[in-house]
Amino acid sequence: MIRLSRRRWVIITILIAGLWSCVALDLNPAGLAIGAGGLGLAGEFFTHALHPALQYESAVPAGTIPILLRSLQAAWWTLIFATTAISLAVAIGMLLGFTASTAWWSEDLTARDTTWRRIITAYLAPAIYGSTRILINLMRSIHELLWAVLLLAAFGIHHMGAAIAIAIPCGGTLAKIFAEMIDETPRDAALAMRDAGATPLQIYFIGLLPRALPDIAAYTLYRFECALRTSAVLGFFGFPTLGFYIAASFENLHYAEVWTYLYVLFGLVALVDWWSGKLRRNMLLWTQTTA
């Protein structure tokens, strides 16, 4: 019997699972060999990648803004939904991240001198902690687009619905990560504060949170990039972001226009990617010099 390391077992399992799913989905290379019509379509679509439209491909009603301006406008709307959603999500994340961390009630950081405090740490805090964790998991486990579908069904189409649809799962994820980061912050300062007689809230907001802040900010930036992509996709549900125009142009067979919008989306994402990367590196430098 050959002894395989766990790592190798994991890889073998992955490959078997991959094969199983290909069989279950009936994926065979023949399925990729598309018919002449499909091939023509694919060829036409991808050759347009080299010359995206600078003008509309068909006549448009007088007064329509030029396509380049319109794509920038759609990019701006994409940005609006994403920023609104991320600012909501940060508020949610901070609030739930606080209640989902153990730092404000865990044994080593709280003195149990009064009966009240003992009751809180023994019963109330774990209950709040536990229910927040469940709430966070529910928020995270339903996809943004499904939240959008639910909110659309409940309220009809409304911009606030789109922002909230992105903010709920994003806020849940931020809360989870914030809580983990705060709990993993070195507790030396916090312990010193406890010994000096600080209350758990003081310890939390002065001893722990500021030290976790650069990591929290860096992760929030990463989530912002995800929100931007989701915001673009929400166009498929009728909101005025890039997805709306991608779908509309594609359905009218205006492939060059599709590529214009795709390139603008690419540009927007790449710009935010570059900017947040630079910001993250700057903040990383920051923590290293203070450490």
Binding site: L25, L27, L145, F250, L265
Partner: peptide
Amino acid sequence: LIFLRAIPEYVWAFLLLAVLGISAWPIV
């Protein structure tokens, strides 16, 4: 790589479904 990840899965799937027809391939 940047281009591949800048385009959301949903948009890729939308485009590929039209090009490849409805099967599991475009989604995967």
